[in-house]
Amino acid sequence: NQASVVANQLIPINTALALVMMRSEVVTPVGIPAEDIPRLVSMQVNRAVPLGTTLMPDMVKGYA
């Protein structure tokens, strides 16, 4: 199964993503693939992302 990017902490709106904020986990539904974690670093989220939430492409500015 494909691992997705999951929030490792609460990520406030407009926060630039850092490695420590993300982990990979096999979840349903599938979100952003875990292999894209390096690409996500320094991109901003466009909403608050609670701990344990799967990151979806529409949550990250400039990802989709």
Score class of each variant (00 low, 15 high):
52 G>W: 04
52 G>A: 12
40 L>W: 02
30 V>N: 15
25 E>V: 09
27 V>K: 08
29 P>I: 05
8 N>S: 13
47 R>P: 02
1 N>M: 15
16 A>V: 13
17 L>N: 01
10 L>N: 13
30 V>R: 06
30 V>A: 12
3 A>P: 09
33 P>D: 06
36 D>L: 14
13 I>R: 15
11 I>S: 00
1 N>V: 15
52 G>V: 01
51 L>Y: 14
19 L>M: 14
52 G>Y: 05
46 N>Y: 10
27 V>S: 04
35 E>Q: 13
22 M>R: 00
61 K>G: 08
55 L>R: 00
7 A>C: 04
52 G>T: 02
51 L>P: 15
18 A>P: 00
42 S>K: 12
9 Q>I: 13
6 V>Y: 03
52 G>C: 04
60 V>G: 00
20 V>K: 14
26 V>K: 06
39 R>F: 11
48 A>Y: 15
32 I>Y: 01
59 M>C: 05
16 A>P: 11
6 V>L: 07
1 N>Q: 15
20 V>H: 13
27 V>R: 09
38 P>T: 10
34 A>I: 07
37 I>H: 01
2 Q>N: 12
30 V>K: 08
37 I>M: 15
17 L>T: 00
28 T>G: 05
31 G>R: 02
40 L>S: 01
53 T>P: 01
36 D>V: 08
6 V>E: 01
17 L>E: 00
3 A>N: 08
47 R>W: 06
27 V>F: 03
33 P>S: 12
27 V>D: 02
33 P>T: 06
47 R>A: 08
25 E>A: 10
55 L>A: 02
31 G>D: 01
24 S>I: 10
59 M>W: 07
26 V>L: 11
34 A>Y: 12
24 S>L: 07
50 P>W: 08
58 D>W: 15
58 D>A: 13
3 A>F: 10
50 P>E: 14
52 G>L: 04
9 Q>S: 12
27 V>E: 02
21 M>E: 00
40 L>Y: 01
42 S>N: 11
61 K>F: 11
36 D>N: 12
20 V>L: 14
58 D>R: 07
29 P>Q: 05
30 V>P: 15
20 V>A: 15
28 T>A: 10
60 V>T: 02
35 E>R: 06
42 S>A: 10
54 T>Q: 03
15 T>F: 07
14 N>L: 07
64 A>V: 13
49 V>C: 06
61 K>S: 13
41 V>N: 04
35 E>H: 10
12 P>C: 06
4 S>R: 01
37 I>T: 07
1 N>T: 14
7 A>L: 03
11 I>C: 03
39 R>P: 01
52 G>P: 01
39 R>K: 13
56 M>W: 05
36 D>P: 00
24 S>R: 13
21 M>Y: 09
11 I>E: 00
62 G>F: 09
57 P>K: 10
38 P>G: 13
51 L>A: 15
32 I>D: 00
26 V>D: 14
24 S>G: 12
10 L>I: 09
44 Q>A: 13
56 M>E: 07
12 P>L: 09
46 N>V: 11
58 D>I: 08
27 V>L: 05
3 A>V: 09
56 M>S: 06
44 Q>K: 14
19 L>F: 14
25 E>Q: 10
22 M>A: 00
15 T>E: 07
32 I>F: 02
37 I>V: 06
6 V>D: 00
35 E>L: 10
56 M>G: 04
46 N>I: 11
29 P>C: 04
23 R>C: 06
57 P>D: 05
9 Q>G: 05
9 Q>M: 14
56 M>H: 07
8 N>V: 08
64 A>D: 08
55 L>V: 11
46 N>M: 13
32 I>A: 01
63 Y>R: 03
32 I>S: 02
54 T>E: 01
52 G>H: 08
41 V>P: 00
5 V>Y: 02
45 V>H: 01
14 N>S: 08
9 Q>H: 08
18 A>Q: 15
36 D>G: 05
60 V>N: 00
35 E>A: 10
13 I>D: 10
9 Q>N: 07
10 L>K: 10
38 P>H: 09
28 T>L: 09
30 V>F: 14
16 A>M: 13
35 E>G: 11
38 P>V: 10
56 M>Q: 11
52 G>D: 09
52 G>M: 05
46 N>H: 09
6 V>T: 05
10 L>F: 15
53 T>M: 13
15 T>N: 04
64 A>E: 08
43 M>W: 07
62 G>E: 09
60 V>P: 01
1 N>F: 15
25 E>N: 08
31 G>I: 02
58 D>Q: 10
47 R>S: 07
60 V>S: 00
2 Q>R: 05
52 G>R: 05
64 A>Q: 15
60 V>D: 00
35 E>S: 12
22 M>E: 00
40 L>N: 00
29 P>K: 05
3 A>C: 14
57 P>W: 11
30 V>W: 11
35 E>F: 11
9 Q>A: 11
50 P>N: 09
27 V>Y: 03
44 Q>W: 13
15 T>R: 06
56 M>V: 06
2 Q>G: 15
63 Y>D: 03
5 V>S: 02
63 Y>P: 03
32 I>M: 03
13 I>L: 08
44 Q>R: 14
9 Q>K: 13
10 L>R: 11
58 D>G: 14
33 P>V: 08
10 L>T: 09
5 V>R: 00
16 A>D: 05
54 T>F: 03
22 M>F: 07
34 A>Q: 05
17 L>S: 00
24 S>P: 15
48 A>S: 14
63 Y>Q: 03
